[in-house]
Design a protein around this nucleic acid. Structure first.
Lengths: 200, 200
DNA sequence: TCAATAATATACCGATCGGTATATTTTAAA
DNA sequence: TTTAAAATATACCGATCGGTATATTATTGA
């Protein structure tokens, strides 16, 4: 065999990859089984042979979408050692979201959080965990920067992390709904200034 | 008659008021006709006698929800003449969103913008207009504050408006999905500092 | 190469979707 | 009080929803 994955594992992955953009675009309630069969070219029988139900697909898709963003950011973070430069990766990435295919339909965390908060406990929990993960990652970058004497010692890691996430998500939402990047650019410019001001 | 409104007008208003929280909670795609009949105690015939279709209800409900928030903010804005105090109304209101019934299910702009951006052009436009309206209102408060010499003359009204909106929406989303207000509090504390720093 | 088995397709289920034609009831002006 | 019109309820439509039992096909270890 050319791969160690079973046929089912490959089909499962295939379904996730093909339907990921749809869930991110239309949301959980807005995505139908027909959308899944149409996007994959498979039948319901095949989809239900690999997933328990629609929920099961949605949860796997969230992980996939979130992972894509995380990997993309991570690769850029590791391209520099400097803590300030690393923090600047965030505004840089989201400012250019139009150039990043899997961010076109929106931030998976934002989309999922907003739809699922009152309706879908499992998705809600996944979105909440993703946010915690993101916050901790930013906090750790700041702590590392303080330890390396690249960031002011009196910087509050949690505060900066929360501001960074809020600005990105809030501005991203505006960009998506207005169809222009004016506000996103303003917010990311401000965030960059704020980050540069952390320099020791 | 005790009111000048026709029966139909009153029923129409009744339907809007009763279904407003549901649309804000479940979203457009997640709200069914059954939800509407259940919430109102009316039948489909009655609802379709007063509205053209589900879209028509959703659009009217968005206006209603958005108007409620706007009126609430406006009343508090007018309680003070000072520009800084007026700007502080925004973090103060959203920080306490749990105490405000029609904000429990989330900010109607955020909810609508996130769901409708790729799926529902009319709702998307309404959300975009609401954002423009909000931005202009904040800008005008800042310009007024500069004219009254209460705010630094070199303040950029648009920049502050965008930061204010982004921080509120981004932090609000986090509060809704995590179920705690820690992040919202941090973001609103920061926003208050930022606003107080505008003082001339 | 050949079975056993795993994976996928077909055909169907009841429930619910948004929507409507028509009958009944309520409103309100004369 | 009567009556025409407006408002609401009833009963139904076809389409689509998520989901499943079973038949067919493809895979894979022996």
């Amino acid at each position: 065999m050319s791969t160690s994955l079973s046929k089912a594992d490959r089909t499962r992955q295939f379904i996730i990859e093909k339907t990921a953009p749809i869930f991110n675009e239309k949301g959980y309630a807005g995505t139908s089984l027909h959308d899944l069969t149409h996007a994959t070219g498979l039948t319901k029988g095949s989809i239900y042979g690999n997933f328990e139900n629609k929920d099961d697909v949605a949860l796997a898709v969230f992980d996939y979408n979130h992972n894509k963003v995380t990997e993309y950011i991570k690769a850029r973070l590791l391209s520099t050692e400097n803590a300030i430069e690393r923090l600047l990766v965030y505004p840089e990435v989201y400012r250019n979201y139009l150039k990043i295919p899997f961010l076109h339909a929106g931030c998976p965390i934002l989309n999922t959080a907003t739809e699922a908060d009152d309706t879908h406990p499992l998705l809600k929990e996944k979105a909440a965990n993703a946010l915690s993960f993101w916050k901790r990652a930013v906090e750790n970058q700041i702590k590392r920067g303080i330890a390396r004497a690249e960031i002011k010692a009196d910087t509050n890691p949690t505060e900066i992390a929360v501001i960074l996430i809020s600005l990105i998500e809030g501005a991203f939402m505006q960009a998506k709904v207005t169809g222009r990047t004016t506000e996103l650019k303003i917010a990311m410019d401000y965030l960059e200034k704020l980050i540069r001001n952390l320099k020791a």
